[in-house]
Simulated scan of single mutants.
Amino acid sequence: MTGDGLFDIARSAEVVNARIDDSVSPRLADVMRVVTRHAHAAIKEAAITQDEWMAAIGFLTQTGHMSNDWRQEFVLLSDVLGISMLVDGLNHQRPAGATENTVLGPFHVANAPRRQLGDSISADNKGEPTLVIGRVTDTAGRPIAGATLDVWQANDDGFYDVQQPDAQPKWNLRGVFETDAEGRYWFTSVKPRFYPIPDDGPVGTLLRALGRHPFRPAHLHFIVGAPGYDEAVTHIFVPDCPYLHQDPVFGVKPSLIADFQHTVDKAEQGQYGFSGPFWKVEWNFILDGARP
């Protein structure tokens, strides 16, 4: 460092970090030192010009202006850069066999309706009928009674209800279920389909500039939890989706790819209350004991 506190290109990060007062939170000081050091190093390595830096500031400004109560453009930016998955992965490392986390996404809505086991979450009657059935257990295979499953998905047109408040019924394709005494759950919905993340803002402009597409592979969202267990924020993915290996938010993990079976057997249709062919996916969630 120069010793007089004045800016110096060669030691730019060190000069800035030296201004952090000893009285601030040690964690804040540590994080800001790392961020400043890597930001300065990146600007030097890429030899960022004045015009490029002003364009970056303009991009971030537009990202802020695009954000509102139901659309968080900064979350979207974090997602498409793989940062959301990185932070989530570092903070939710679980033992082998436990259900893995993936990104929450920007369209979760709290306080969805509580539904009875076997209910349908589809209110617009679009799409191919689908049965989702399974169990919630701990890592030793013991059933977890009373576990909650908060589930949501896009409709057959590729939109969540909050994206089309005038076109979709409220709470369409959303619901909260509770497992029975044997840890079982089941409900009906429609087969998920792929859809584009919102690409009419600065994040969409960035994707196009990078030659990337906006299509998320078909999936259902889940938040699965029970007292005393580490909550799982996760998806299950449709295996035949053309975008399965090209998720723009990097949310796909091999352990989350499900097996959707097309069921034409009339006896099984009658057993589950369907009047014709339907899709069936059996999926078990395995929760890890909560850590301090």
Results as ranks from 00 to 15, higher is better:
residue 127 G to H: 12
residue 37 R to P: 00
residue 115 R to Y: 01
residue 216 R to A: 08
residue 95 P to Q: 09
residue 105 G to D: 03
residue 174 R to K: 11
residue 114 R to L: 15
residue 186 W to E: 03
residue 104 L to E: 10
residue 145 A to E: 13
residue 2 T to E: 09
residue 255 S to F: 00
residue 220 L to F: 10
residue 7 F to Q: 11
residue 95 P to E: 07
residue 248 P to D: 07
residue 195 Y to A: 09
residue 285 F to D: 06
residue 277 P to F: 03
residue 182 E to P: 00
residue 227 P to W: 02
residue 197 I to R: 02
residue 250 F to S: 07
residue 247 D to V: 01
residue 283 W to G: 00
residue 206 L to Q: 10
residue 256 L to Q: 13
residue 265 D to I: 03
residue 245 H to E: 15
residue 172 N to H: 14
residue 126 K to C: 03
residue 29 A to F: 11
residue 37 R to L: 10
residue 177 F to W: 08
residue 135 R to C: 00
residue 276 G to P: 01
residue 285 F to K: 01
residue 214 P to C: 07
residue 275 S to I: 01
residue 170 K to R: 14
residue 188 T to Q: 09
residue 155 N to P: 02
residue 55 A to T: 04
residue 117 L to I: 09
residue 93 Q to N: 09
residue 40 H to I: 13
residue 117 L to P: 00
residue 229 Y to M: 05
residue 35 V to A: 10
residue 203 V to I: 15
residue 150 D to P: 00
residue 171 W to T: 02
residue 222 F to H: 11
residue 236 I to H: 05
residue 106 P to N: 13
residue 186 W to P: 00
residue 78 S to M: 11
residue 165 P to S: 11
residue 144 I to L: 15
residue 15 V to G: 00
residue 110 A to S: 14
residue 268 E to L: 13
residue 13 A to T: 07
residue 199 D to T: 07
residue 204 G to F: 11
residue 267 A to V: 13
residue 29 A to V: 12
residue 211 G to I: 06
residue 142 R to Y: 00
residue 48 I to K: 01
residue 186 W to T: 00
residue 94 R to A: 06
residue 61 T to W: 05
residue 74 F to S: 11
residue 175 G to I: 03
residue 29 A to I: 11
residue 16 V to Y: 09
residue 209 A to W: 01
residue 87 V to K: 09
residue 80 V to A: 05
residue 94 R to G: 00
residue 159 F to M: 10
residue 159 F to I: 04
residue 11 R to K: 09
residue 202 P to E: 14
residue 232 A to W: 04
residue 266 K to R: 12
residue 77 L to K: 06
residue 123 A to Q: 15
residue 100 E to G: 08
residue 200 D to H: 12
residue 120 S to H: 01
residue 20 I to E: 14
residue 243 Y to H: 15
residue 66 M to C: 04
residue 122 S to Q: 12
residue 94 R to S: 07
residue 143 P to W: 05
residue 10 A to F: 02
residue 62 Q to S: 11
residue 254 P to T: 02
residue 204 G to Y: 10
residue 232 A to I: 14
residue 230 D to F: 04
residue 37 R to V: 02
residue 248 P to N: 06
residue 224 V to N: 05
residue 222 F to W: 15
residue 164 Q to N: 09
residue 146 G to L: 08
residue 187 F to I: 08
residue 83 I to K: 04
residue 132 V to I: 14
residue 133 I to T: 04
residue 182 E to S: 12
residue 119 D to G: 01
residue 82 G to M: 05
residue 276 G to T: 00
residue 17 N to T: 14
residue 18 A to T: 06
residue 208 R to L: 02
residue 46 A to F: 10
residue 246 Q to A: 15
residue 20 I to R: 15
residue 141 G to R: 13
residue 148 T to N: 08
residue 154 A to L: 06
residue 88 D to H: 02
residue 199 D to F: 03
residue 65 H to K: 12
residue 202 P to I: 11
residue 149 L to W: 03
residue 154 A to R: 11
residue 228 G to I: 05
residue 28 L to W: 11
residue 206 L to R: 12
residue 254 P to E: 06
residue 79 D to V: 01
residue 200 D to R: 11
residue 231 E to M: 14
residue 242 P to E: 14
residue 139 T to Q: 13
residue 276 G to L: 05
residue 70 W to F: 15
residue 198 P to H: 12
residue 191 K to N: 06
residue 287 L to V: 04
residue 251 G to Y: 03
residue 106 P to C: 07
residue 86 L to Q: 10
residue 162 V to M: 15
residue 86 L to Y: 07
residue 46 A to T: 13
residue 184 R to L: 11
residue 97 G to A: 12
